[in-house]
């Protein structure tokens, strides 16, 4: 007599680390943390714009002068982005399949806005990053002015003087802030750190850090638009 009502059934090999949702989330946490470090470094570098063209351009030259190391950083970053996105896409597909018939009504009772918007804040930020690289790194798209290789200060100021570039930048960076507000503490959860006393502090810290980063970035286009940086 077969026992299909029964809980016992054929046994199979276990899914590996990357096949498991938990493993993918751990990868997302680590790659997210790498990108987070870059974001911090990047904002710190960019803010030198307020110290004048010489300082910023010198910083730009310095980055180019370190050569191989820059490429190592770029490779690590690109790998992080790819892994982060691959994991996200795979998990999103799995999650969609996990509830084939949706609810007629569903109310969120506990989750934050930021956490529920990760799926679309992420892709928009990605599109932005591509645009951003094309504009300021490669110089392919540089509306309103001529891209001058090596004159970072000029490129930034001229770029942001186009109002819609600034608006798009501010919008995307705000979404990045939202993404970080959940991402920063969520990464800790995914690699197994949660403590009833520390995690609430971590969540607060995540909010403050995300806010500071967002403010740091958007201070640049705003200053340009207001004419504070020329």
């Amino acid at each position: 007599m077969s026992a299909s009502t029964a809980v016992t059934a054929d046994q199979n090999r276990a899914p590996g680390f990357w096949q498991s949702t938990n493993g993918k989330k751990a990868v997302m946490a680590v790659t997210g943390a790498i990108m987070f470090l870059f974001i911090i470094g990047h904002v710190a570098g960019n803010l030198q714009i307020f110290e004048g063209p010489d300082k910023l351009n010198a910083y730009g030259h310095f980055l180019h002068s370190i050569g191989e190391i820059l490429w190592v950083v770029r490779v690590v970053l690109i790998a992080s982005v790819i892994l982060h996105i691959t994991a996200t896409v795979q998990l999103a597909l799995r999650n969609k399949a996990a509830r084939p018939v949706g609810y007629s009504r569903k109310q969120a009772i506990n989750s934050s806005y930021a956490s529920r918007t990760m799926y679309w804040s992420g892709p928009i930020v990605l599109v932005f990053i591509i645009f951003h690289l094309l504009q300021f790194t490669a110089g392919y798209i540089h509306p309103g002015s001529q891209f001058i290789e090596g004159d970072v200060y000029h490129n930034v100021v001229a770029g942001f003087q186009v109002w819609w570039v600034s608006v798009w930048y501010i919008f995307a960076v705000s979404l990045l802030g939202l993404h970080l507000r959940h991402g920063i503490w969520s990464a800790f959860q995914s690699i197994g750190y949660n403590h009833p006393r520390h995690t609430p502090l971590l969540k607060k810290a995540a909010l403050i850090i995300a806010l500071l980063i967002t403010l740091g970035y958007i201070s640049i286009p705003i200053s340009v638009l207001l004419g504070l940086v020329k």
Partner: peptide, 12 residues
């Protein structure tokens, strides 16, 4: 857990 068709945790 991962063999069953459950979705993943997004820590929300």
């Amino acid at each position: 857990l991962n063999t069953e068709p459950f979705g993943s945790c997004t820590n929300i």
